[in-house]
């Protein structure tokens, strides 16, 4: 159960990795927009990750993650054939499907992963999809081919201009919304990526009055509607990302509060990471400056 059957490194520094996990039930059931929770081992924490892709026939779930803390680093160290202690899902509400006309999907960095699964669902539902994918630099762009194949139009941006359009995804977003202002062609924007990027995707679309969905990567513990760790303020009301979300109307989300809440455990995360880097499990002595 929960065996890793494929692994690929998309970027080395920061580490961005793809894994396919054998989880037939989840693969059959997961829809675009939903997430899973993994736990590495007995002492592990429960970490939510949005589903990047599923293969119901082969019973596989694809996840893509950036190595930002101890748990994701340790996950990245696992190899094909290894198993996760727990792989739980699908969780959260699927992206609401409808006839939106043209949907503009804006994905930043690791957000390309969940966006892929949503675009897949949108296309299956018969929508036209324009996608913008962007990252800080060329190395962090992945799945361009898959996104191009699914989308009716695809724009690729890098902040440093090392690939595609030089600039932020919001620049292209604004241009496309401007173009669609008259026709009203774009009926929905979906923005997924780092919280700060989502905040600006929403700020960009707001003056155009186009509804914008964001997928919030809040801190969770049980992720099944029990603990309330994931609460966010949406339209002045407290909502729970694990059961009410993860997608919300981005124009109503209190991003500033959410950003502050994302920083609660920064200190502890540093401690855990330091401890991990000096442990035998890490195996990357070059990073600890040789003081092991």
């Amino acid at each position: 159960m929960n065996r890793i059957v494929a692994k690929e490194e998309f970027s080395r520094n920061p580490g961005v990795k793809m894994m396919q996990i054998e989880a037939p039930r989840i693969a059959r059931k997961a829809k675009g927009g939903q997430f899973v929770v993994f736990r590495l081992n007995e002492t592990g924490e429960r970490v939510p990750l949005t589903v990047a892709d599923t293969d119901p026939e082969k019973g596989l779930v694809t996840i893509i993650f950036q190595e930002v803390g101890k748990s994701t680093m340790a996950l990245g160290k696992l190899e094909v054939g290894d198993c996760l202690a727990d792989f739980i899902g699908p969780l959260g509400q699927p992206t609401h499907m409808g006839d939106f006309g043209t949907v503009l999907c804006v994905a930043g960095g690791i957000g390309i992963a969940p966006t892929h699964n949503i675009v897949k669902a949108l296309k299956a539902h018969g929508n036209k999809v324009i996608s913008i994918i962007g990252a800080r630099t060329k190395e962090l762009i992945f799945w361009e081919d898959k996104m191009r194949e699914l989308s009716d139009e695809l724009y690729v941006c890098t902040d440093d201009g090392s690939y595609g359009i030089h600039g932020l995804v919001t620049k292209v977003e604004e241009e496309l919304l401007e173009k669609s202002r008259e026709s009203g062609e774009i009926g929905l924007v979906i923005g997924i990526g780092p919280p700060i990027m989502m905040k600006f995707v929403c700020k960009t679309s707001e003056p155009f009055g186009v509804k914008t969905l964001v997928s919030l990567p809040t801190i969770m513990v049980d992720a099944t509607g029990m603990c309330g760790a994931c609460r966010v303020t949406v339209g002045g009301e407290t909502k729970f990302v694990c059961v009410d979300g993860p997608e919300f109307d981005g124009h109503k989300v209190d991003f500033d509060e959410m950003l502050k809440r994302q920083s609660i455990y920064l200190e502890q995360e540093k401690v855990a990471l330091e401890r991990y880097r000096h442990s035998d499990d890490c195996g990357c002595c070059d990073e600890c400056g040789g003081d092991r």
């Binding site: 513990v221 609660i264 502890q268």
Partner: peptide
């Protein structure tokens, strides 16, 4: 930050053994 529901506070401490952090990962 620092405001918990009892469910979260207790779940972190009991189920996830956060009182034994960093031996256990949950803070």
């Amino acid at each position: 930050n620092g405001v918990y529901s009892a469910n979260e506070y207790l779940t972190r401490s009991n189920l996830m053994k956060a009182y034994r952090f960093p031996e256990y990962d949950t803070p």
